[in-house]
Simulated assay, not measured.
Amino acid sequence: MKPSERRKARRLATQAIYQWQMTRDNVADIAQQFALEQDTKGVDLDYFRDLLFGVSVHATELDAVYSPYLSRPLAELDVVDKAVLRLATYELTRREDVPYRVVINEAIELAKAFAAEESHKFVNGVLDKVIKQLKK
């Protein structure tokens, strides 16, 4: 598996997670929609599905991992930031095959691509604290 295939899977998963957060549509329907309507060439679709379904199933647990390090209440967190943090926290806690440095780097890139201008710094700061807690 090429890193670029996982990178593309993360990009699609971030968008799909965002859609799920906004609409609360059925995750299987969102996954199917993305598979049909998005350019999935070079995308690790199994990884995409793992991220999307994993985040949707474990969202409350994931929020509990990173929310203590937020500078504002979880309810006030930007929806894109939440999607990126949930995805990264899922990888950090459930995908031991992915090095934490890769997870943080990818999350920063996702925040730069999809979130507000300074969000990547916020995401980096939160995930750094999550990593320190997980390593204890």
Rank of each mutant, 00 (worst) to 15 (best):
S4T: 04
S4V: 07
E5T: 01
A9W: 00
A9R: 00
R10S: 04
R10Q: 03
L12V: 00
Y18V: 02
Q21K: 11
R24E: 13
D25H: 12
A28P: 04
A31E: 08
Q33H: 09
F34G: 05
A35C: 06
A35R: 09
L36Y: 04
E37H: 15
D39H: 15
T40I: 12
K41L: 13
K41H: 13
G42V: 01
D46R: 07
F48W: 10
F48T: 01
R49Q: 05
R49D: 05
L51M: 05
G54R: 03
V55H: 08
S56R: 15
V57I: 10
V57Q: 06
H58F: 07
A59G: 02
A59E: 12
T60V: 15
T60I: 14
T60W: 08
A64Y: 01
V65W: 00
Y66L: 12
S67F: 05
L70K: 00
S71R: 15
S71Q: 14
S71D: 15
P73T: 05
L77G: 00
D78N: 09
D78A: 11
V79K: 10
K82V: 00
A83Y: 03
L87C: 12
L87N: 04
L87M: 10
A88M: 04
T93A: 09
V98F: 10
V102H: 08
V102T: 12
I104A: 15
N105F: 11
E106K: 07
E109N: 06
E109I: 08
L110E: 11
A111H: 07
A111V: 04
K112D: 07
A113N: 01
F114E: 09
E117P: 02
H120Y: 15
H120R: 03
F122S: 07
V123N: 01
N124G: 05
N124R: 14
N124P: 00
L127T: 00
K129E: 15
V130I: 15
L134F: 09
K135Q: 11
K136N: 06
